[in-house]
Nucleic acid binder design. Structure first.
Lengths: 251, 251
DNA sequence: AAGACGCATTGACAGTTATCAACTGACTTC
DNA sequence: GAAGTCAGTTGATAACTGTCAATGCGTCTT
């Protein structure tokens, strides 16, 4: 894990109007936001924001996968969530970050400098309401994820993870793809990270994949590419209680 | 479980200035809030807000304990959090509630009617920022609670619950009390509810209490009154990773 | 006072997961 | 190309949890 050494993305300008997360905002506000945002890229396995830090920006993910992680004193870490395309990350206001934000893959983000962003927020009721809405969605999603974690069996939590992935990133083509009636999911993280996210061990995750495959629910083409063969059974296994149909932030 | 049949609290007026949750707000705003709030009381085991409902108010708890619960189709429920003295509950804006809010004990709340409250929020940047802050704290706390749930052993999750209780309600005397060097915790819910909250079964919760007692960490005076005899070991057992020192909302 | 009831606890056993170990396959390095 | 490395998988056993059953202990009812 290397420290944050991002580089400004080439001429890739900030065209917020095309991004779904910012649709619904008025034209003038979008223009203001575009002024204070900088596109950046980071290599895989990089710490963008350390735990306990007060980052100088607020991020929006254009491409790639990041993980939120609680890092312990002994160096071990506990993953508490993923951040993917279309999600935002970083604390609002000048709060310290309760979690580390680390890139899993190479990532391309939009970087909103904290000072100007907060100044804009205090001027613009629209932006403030926008952030309030985002936070509420985030809270609902975190509660949804809690429901997944409350499942006792690892196969159930894994099924829940796959379902959440489908719901959250249904529109992100390279993560979830409907191919002539078949559903393909790209698992964006390693088995090791997945074990941490699900509160179990690598071996159990592996066995859970095998168990779901044996029951004809999924088929692992590669460890990172899963085909769902029985969506109904997958939903049943997940507990069928993932209801927040909202779209846009974190798992 | 009976349906919401609250009754207006007698002459108990709304003196917000005394309540910690509203300290930090300007005098005029407090005055405005006092105008639109109504004190109410509900008996134990009552549904204040059903799942999927759009409640007509936003609540602040003055006294008593409530639970947030995801109710399934088959009638079973999954508790996702507690709401206690000083906490607020209910969705902002006219959103449907993703969880049911049910009283555990008799409760006394302040009821802010949604219409006037939202009107006030759109007029007052101060109130909007206040709510934003509350939401962020809530989100951090939910992530903290997730960390507790990610513990594999029930004794660890139970220890985490007790620690969270101490941190969150350190100032609520009848829940957490330091008596001449001894720490006493009032467990505010039944073993059955606690099992649901911790994602396990009643019997396992019972065994976890016994196990912690056997190791000299706690001593159950009654099922609802626990004395902590070794705070350090309790913190270790909890994973020692509950860091959000913020105060005021939900577990 | 006796019985009924709800809640908490404990015991016995089956089911699930953690742990340690071995093995496979893809990729790197020399 | 052979050896080494790493992520993923599978196997065997110990540790833990779920389930069913029985018991203790209060409160409420009659």
């Amino acid at each position: 894990m290397t420290r944050a050494t991002g580089s400004p993305a080439d001429k890739d300008d900030c065209d917020l109007s095309k991004l779904e997360a910012f649709s619904g905002l008025s034209q003038p506000l979008v223009a203001e936001l575009e002024k204070i945002c900088r596109p950046m890229t980071y290599p895989a396995e990089t710490t963008l924001i350390g735990m306990g830090e007060t980052p100088e920006y607020f991020g929006y993910v254009r491409r790639g996968i990041l993980r939120m992680q609680r890092v312990h004193l002994d160096g071990t870490g506990q993953i508490v969530g993923l951040v993917a395309e279309g999600d935002v990350f970083g604390p609002l206001f000048e709060g310290i970050s309760e979690v580390a934000i680390e890139s899993v893959t190479e990532v391309s983000i939009l970087n909103f400098r904290r000072g100007p962003f907060e100044a804009l927020m205090s001027r613009s009721v629209e932006l403030e309401q926008f952030m309030l809405q985002k936070l509420m969605i985030d809270l609902d999603r975190t509660r949804d994820w809690m429901l997944v974690l409350l499942n006792r069996k690892v196969t159930e939590r894994l099924a829940g993870f796959l379902v959440v992935l489908c719901i959250r990133y249904a529109n992100v083509d390279h993560l979830v793809r409907w191919d002539d009636g078949r559903l393909e999911i790209r698992v964006p993280i390693s088995r090791c990270d997945l074990a941490s996210l699900l509160g179990t061990r690598v071996e159990s995750v592996s066995r859970a994949f095998s168990a779901l495959a044996k029951r004809g629910i999924i088929h692992s083409k590669t460890p990172y590419l899963v085909e769902v063969r029985d969506v109904r059974k997958l939903l049943e296994e997940a507990g069928g209680e993932i209801t927040s149909a909202v779209t846009g932030l974190r798992i």
